[in-house]
Design a protein around this nucleic acid. Structure first.
Length: 434
RNA sequence: GGAAGGGUGUCCGAGCGGUUUAAGGAAACGGUCUUGAAAACCGUCGUGCCAGCAAUGGUACCGUGGGUUCGAAUCCCACCCCUUCCGCCA
């Protein structure tokens, strides 16, 4: 959530920018609730003070029940209960209004009212030329039994697949490649220097996080999209995570991290689950949009000062990874409407898919400033003793399903095979072709 | 799933209705002493929220949420987590 003090000081700006992001919020009502809340709170606190003073008097009298003081205590208690109930009601409303306010977009985020207004920042790489009609990934993979969706539908329903054979080995190769790359300080250092960033060259630590999480931290992360998007295990108050990000960004819930530990950089791997309600009929072929997919996700905790540079580093890493695989891509600066509620800035990378004849989203990078950390209460203690909220960043390293779709379509041969990108071959026993 | 024991500040650990503004110890930080260091000694040492320019004052927090009471870390209820044993299991 946003800092209430910031909202008080910049009410008009918050109202305008929320609307630019497509969120209907009532800042005026929020501020009214805020004032009411504070006035009720001071009433409650002075009643508590009275109660404590009364208790002290009884204590000083040796704990002997003095009828008058006990009676007085009873009266205060009743009054307090009433005041607390009133405060509780207002606080509940206040929090609802406060949490409805999205994060403010940074100054360079284009204003737009639909995803069509995202801006192509740059286009990189050359589209491959084929002397035959390129196929879509499923037209290649299904006949060769690398993907079996028919049987998966029988067993698990639509939007599930059995991934098989060399395609499985390809996925594991990509994973190994990413782990090696992000674990290599020389690579991080090169990207930091090339982009003129003022951040550490610390490599990423691999993490296998839990794939389920509880409601409380999930809500605090501002990443829980209602039941339409996320699977709920009702019986156990658990949700299936929709990205490793969700169990990574919540990791330091309610903690204060020593500044020397920052930045904390993780590369998490998790199977991700999404209900995809409301997408019926969209991307029904192949494995572009699945209920279950594997993903490698970067998560960074940093100081406020380095947050933006960490974001730029994450994007640089994404581009580097895609370039290494030899995939043509474009970088999209997402507009205010598309960056998402908790995010201050968002970048998408779209890889060229020759079979489909268009660019498709394969990566996202989100800079969340302190919006997520505020509710999660993830802070850092500076060397001088002051405590500030950390900034969080998350970014896709590879959504493995879509990465494979891109490889299959870009590296297809006339006879329906797939050339293995060179950087992946060491992780596939030097196999050059699938 | 069954049985038992536990969850207290950065850590260890006492407290089990009002002497708690949470004892004591360790770590950390500052200082005295020392050629320097160690040791010893002295001091500092949690996080929110509200008011205030500030100094400061008030208030809340002893796993979480309810309850009892004039008063709860302490008593009651529910839940969560940890440890050990049994069962089951990769």
């Amino acid at each position: 959530m946003l800092d209430i003090q910031f909202i008080r000081d910049n009410a008009d700006e918050v109202q305008t920018k929320s609307q630019q992001k497509g969120y209907q919020v009532d800042v005026k009502e929020l501020l009214r609730l805020d004032e009411e809340r504070r006035s009720l709170l001071s009433g409650v606190e002075s009643l508590r003070q009275k109660r404590n003073e009364n208790t002290d008097k009884i204590k000083q009298a040796g704990g002997k029940p003095d009828e008058g003081l006990v009676h007085q205590g009873k009266l205060i208690k009743m009054e307090l209960a009433q005041a607390e109930e009133q405060l509780g009601g207002i606080e509940e409303q206040y929090e609802k209004f406060l949490k409805a306010v999205p994060n403010m977009p940074l100054g360079d985020v284009p204003v737009g009212s639909s995803e069509d207004e995202n801006v192509v920042a740059k286009t990189v790489g050359e589209k491959p030329h084929f002397d035959f009609e390129p196929k879509e990934h499923w037209q290649i993979a299904e006949p060769r039994d690398l993907i079996d969706k028919a049987r998966a539908a029988k067993i698990s329903g639509s939007r599930f697949a059995y991934i098989k054979g060399d395609l499985v080995r390809l996925q594991f190769a990509i994973m190994q490649f990413v782990m090696q790359t992000l674990g290599d300080e020389a690579v991080i250092k090169k990207l930091v220097e090339e982009n003129g960033l003022h951040v550490s060259t610390k490599p990423f630590t691999p993490v296998l996080p839990p794939a389920m999480l509880r409601t409380a931290p999930y809500v605090a992360s501002a990443r829980l999209n209602a039941e339409e998007v996320t699977y709920k295990i009702e019986q156990d108050d658990l949700w299936l995570n929709a990205s490793a990000e969700h169990t990574l960004c919540t990791m330091y819930w309610n903690e204060i991290l020593p500044e020397e530990q920052l930045p904390i950089r993780y590369i998490g791997y998790s199977t991700s689950f999404r209900r995809e309600a409301g997408t019926y009929g969209k991307d029904t072929d192949g494995i572009i949009r699945m209920h279950q997919f594997d993903k490698l996700e970067m998560e960074i905790f940093s100081t406020p000062e380095t947050g933006l540079d960490e974001h730029l580093l994450a994007v640089a890493i994404q581009e580097y990874l895609v370039q290494q695989l030899g995939l043509p891509y474009q970088v999209l600066q997402k507009c205010t409407f598309d960056i998402g509620k908790p995010n201050a800035r968002g970048i998408d990378i779209e890889c060229w898919m020759p079979g489909q004849g268009k660019y498709r989203e394969t990566h996202t990078a989100d800079y969340i400033t302190d919006y997520q950390a505020r509710d999660l209460k993830v802070r850092t203690k500076r060397k001088n003793g002051t405590i500030v909220l950390v900034h969080t960043n998350d970014a896709t390293a590879f959504a493995l399903g879509r990465a494979m779709v891109a490889i299959i379509e870009n590296y297809q041969t006339a006879d329906g095979h797939i050339i293995v990108p060179e950087v992946l071959r060491p992780f596939m026993g030097n196999q050059a072709k699938i």
